[in-house]
Amino acid sequence: MVTAMAKVNPDFKKKVTTSGEFNATACMDCGVCTAVCPMEIDLLPRKLFRYTLLGLEDKVLEHQQVIYQCLLCKMCEVNCTADVHIAENVRFLRSYISKEIFKL
């Protein structure tokens, strides 16, 4: 049963993903990235990228702090079985926030 409607922003998805580099669709949700993360961030990148692909901007922005806590160290990326460019994807989200939220 659906109890709450999620607000979808198609423009958000478009702005983050149209670079052609945001390749999170390959993610199989295997969880290796979470297991090896030195920050022990359990949200990134699985849910975050899924929110982005669904256009759930509010959900992504709820986790703004986590997005900036990522070290971009690529420990997850070298262990990713689906070759997702995890660090670059996180950087794309930062780029969106810098431009649209912080107006930099």
Binding site: P38, Y68, Q69
Partner: peptide, 25 residues
Amino acid sequence: RDLTHCCGGPIESLFPKMAHQIGGK
């Protein structure tokens, strides 16, 4: 090597205490 552990430095400007914990590990 390619599985090295981060020093924590990249988040130092925004989260200094957390960076220090990663460095400690």
